[in-house]
Design a protein around this nucleic acid. Structure first.
Lengths: 215, 215
DNA sequence: CCTGTTTTTTATATATAATTAACAAATTGA
DNA sequence: TCAATTTGTTAATTATATATAAAAAACAGG
């Protein structure tokens, strides 16, 4: 009954476990111990065991973890046991790239629509999905029961659009705009701030250079 | 003389401070206290003060922080006081989007070349930058003193390309492929694994739904 | 079909790291 | 001059990661 709060750090590692297990599964590996997996992933075996134990005892003493079973369990934990309805806001370069990425569909994230303000591109298609005008957005989200919206528009427009989305029942926003979106309790936001990622890279590179100069 | 090791968590927050300070600067704000900034950024004032103090005493008691000065200081810490030479590997949807993003150039990240294996697109241009064949890559990196390579190609090719890059003196890789790149000491990698980000979003959304069902 | 040894998980304890709180010292501005 | 601010820094708290100990299962050999 009581909720065990799982830390964000653990959650953030889960998709990586999932990726490695998927690869092992594809290679036909049947079982793996935390020690073997730790060598593969370059994390401690202790951390792997503790992370997985937050969600249940998936392993067996003396045996290890069954790759296929663990893979399926993590898929369920990540919410991949059913499909999700997605829309992409913004048909610029980035929106185009995201809408055209086939791997998302493989995981059950189905792109139902693309929206843009530019009249020049409205009506054209990306991978068979029509680009619609922003005026259609509110009704489309409600009628098609859209779960997730991908925001790939400039920051000046992003906050306003996110409000419209929230008002019409969106449950999650994958935010690529350079702004922190204010959303009410219950709506989930995952930020991908590419510029910030590049700046982090720049910092680390600069530090390496300094280190090299010192010897 | 001795190196104070600054934690990754602090580094990861630095670009966000930089973003907010940039916005304040644009709005003409001259000074700000850690308390005001904390309200704006939704972090504790204590954390702001402690984070900034890792790099130096930029503030003044009774006054706060000078926005413009602090902005410039962080820019320097992030390595933005000089330009960087970039190349993009992969002229697919994502490579296209990244190569076409004007904000990177504004921050001093200059895209010097784009590379692809597809003969169909070699020779064409993105924002005036020619797409070249992969055979030209090694020499191009050396001759043009490329600092950073953006990897936007499938994982099957990514490891091989990263080795070529390292051999020719690349110092940092911004990795969008779904694989962990093995690089030697001194070469920096920043991963942007979009699928993993989406899975994290999916998990958090799933949890919210469960929470709502319980009431 | 046991049995002892090895493997490996799970549970627990310890160590490390990160965040928040507290406060003295400095500065401002009336 | 003095009260109100606000930093830099030290201390306390909380969170996270690692190491250790205990329990369970597997397996080889008789």
């Amino acid at each position: 009954m009581k909720e065990k709060q799982i830390s964000g750090a653990v959650i953030a590692r889960l998709p990586r476990y999932f990726r490695f297990l998927g690869e092992l599964k594809d290679e036909g590996v049947e079982k793996i111990s935390s020690r073997e997996l730790s060598k593969l992933m370059h994390v401690t075996a202790s951390q792997i065991r503790q992370d997985l134990n937050h969600f249940g005892g998936f392993g067996q003493q003396g045996y290890g973890y069954n790759v296929s079973f663990l893979y399926d369990e993590i898929a369920q934990i990540l919410g991949l046991d059913h499909t999700h309805n997605l829309i992409v806001i913004g048909a610029g370069n980035l929106g185009h790239a995201l809408a055209g990425y086939p791997n998302f569909e493989k995981r059950g994230f189905l792109i139902r629509g693309i929206f843009d303000i530019n009249p020049g591109c409205i009506g054209s298609q990306i991978r068979g999905i029509k680009i619609r005008s922003m005026e259609e957005l509110p009704e489309f989200v409600r009628v098609n029961r859209i779960d997730i919206a991908v925001i790939a528009i400039p920051k000046t427009a992003a906050v306003g659009v996110s409000q419209i989305l929230v008002e019409n029942g969106i449950r999650a926003i994958w935010n690529f705009s350079h702004v922190d979106l204010p959303v009410p309790e219950g709506v989930v936001v995952e930020d991908v701030h590419l510029t910030e990622s590049l700046l982090k890279l720049s910092y680390n590179m600069t530090q390496e250079t300094k280190g090299a100069l010192r010897g």
